[in-house]
Amino acid sequence: MDDAALTAKSDLFDSESLLTDEERRTRARIARFNADHAAPGAAERWVEGRMALELVPELTRLGVYGGGVQGYGCSGLGDVADGLVAAELAKVDFGLSAFFGIHGVLTLRAISSLGTPEQKSRWLPGMADGSSIGALGITEPDHGSDTAGIETRARSVEGGFRITGRKRWVGNASVADLTVVFAKDDHDAVAAFVVPGGSEGFQATPIEGKIGMRSSWPTDIVLEDVFVPSDHRLDGADGPQIAGAFNAVRPIAAWQALGLSIGAFEATLTYLDAREQFGSPLTSFQLVQHKLAEMAVAISSMRLTCIRVSRALQDGSLTHVMASAAKMLCARQGRSVVSTARDLMGGNGLLADRVVGRHFADMEAVFTYDGTDHIQSLIVGKAITGRSAFRRA
């Protein structure tokens, strides 16, 4: 079964017709990159817990960083294109999708949204051409979903700021040339600071022992009185802009859930169609068809959701409720899809050399990060009822 035929199996609402020709071409370039570069060795990298840094230059040459950013050398392909790239990479190697999402989307967008024109001119071109790798530090050991509780502090000193605190689950930071760190300033307001890699007092250590995201390197960061000059504070921002930068995180997580789901579905369908039990292909059994139908409908709805929220992000109409609802829906549906795929694959679904086994583990990370399912539901619940369920002591 060719790629187009496989795609149609989980696109029951014809979301393909909603894409532009340029968006389809962008996805096709990533599909070729996957076949030629990412798929070979993906299982070995996952088992070894190794990120495919050697493939980053090849990915960079495709010119796909910064789809949601206009100018400064960024691709400007659009936010849907960003999502398509993240999803297509996630189908094969979630570590590469995580790298792209953090560097090529979120860090670029944060600097673009929050920086002054001078700051954007200084940092964006190098990130767009891959000569400078970016990371984004929001989550802390004691503050994940509760971003308002950030404890990292940026104290004003002569010529700049001294930043002290800790961050956790920060992708790319151990190999990054710059990390955008969110901290509270002297006035207790959340602000963003560009911290160069290698700064004295800055340490980023990859987190070991993960059962998912094994081919990605999220890190623990310790900042001990790290000095950054005054012009490293992203001063083109106010409160609403910072909130908007956070909103951009969740659509990418939704796209990654979609990519993992498509990868698991397509691998499972191919496997079941070729495997016989009791004298018939597994795909001829009622229970199997029922589960495949549920998976296909879930993925089809995820496709539409991802396109919708990315179009809204691009035209400026995305709200935090839309972003949370999209992440909530796609992470839940995706978790169900990969779990069903693992079930249908039987014992083979537990093997790391199978796409389904790796995606089953990696989906748990997507279900959790960028705001847990519980937090997303409370954001949506507040919008429905007008009452906040969040409480502070």
Rank of each mutant, 00 (worst) to 15 (best):
A135W: 04
A135F: 07
A135I: 03
A135C: 07
L136M: 12
L136F: 15
L136P: 15
L136N: 13
G137Q: 07
G137R: 09
G137H: 10
I138Q: 01
T139R: 06
T139M: 00
E140D: 10
E140P: 12
D142A: 01
H143F: 14
G144C: 13
G144Q: 12
G144N: 13
S145D: 15
S145P: 08
D146E: 11
D146F: 14
D146H: 15
T147Y: 12
T147C: 10
T147A: 10
T147W: 07
A148P: 07
A148W: 13
A148R: 14
A148F: 15
G149R: 04
G149D: 02
I150N: 12
I150A: 14
E151P: 04
T152N: 10
T152D: 09
T152P: 10
T152W: 10
T152A: 14
R153M: 00
R153F: 02
R153D: 02
R153S: 00
R153P: 01
A154S: 04
A154N: 04
A154I: 05
R155P: 04
S156R: 14
S156L: 10
S156H: 07
V157Y: 09
V157D: 06
V157I: 06
V157T: 02
E158N: 03
E158Q: 02
E158T: 10
G159E: 03
G159R: 05
G159P: 02
G160E: 05
G160R: 11
F161V: 09
R162M: 11
R162L: 14
R162P: 11
I163S: 02
T164F: 03
T164L: 08
T164D: 03
G165H: 00
G165S: 04
G165Y: 00
R166Q: 09
R166E: 06
R166D: 03
R166V: 00
R166I: 01
R166K: 14
K167T: 09
K167N: 12
R168N: 07
R168G: 06
R168V: 02
R168S: 06
R168C: 01
W169I: 13
W169M: 15
W169S: 11
W169T: 15
V170T: 14
V170E: 03
G171I: 04
G171W: 06
G171R: 03
G171E: 09
N172Y: 06
N172K: 06
N172I: 08
A173P: 05
A173H: 01
S174R: 01
S174V: 07
S174K: 04
V175F: 14
V175G: 08
V175C: 12
V175Q: 14
V175W: 11
A176M: 07
A176G: 08
A176T: 02
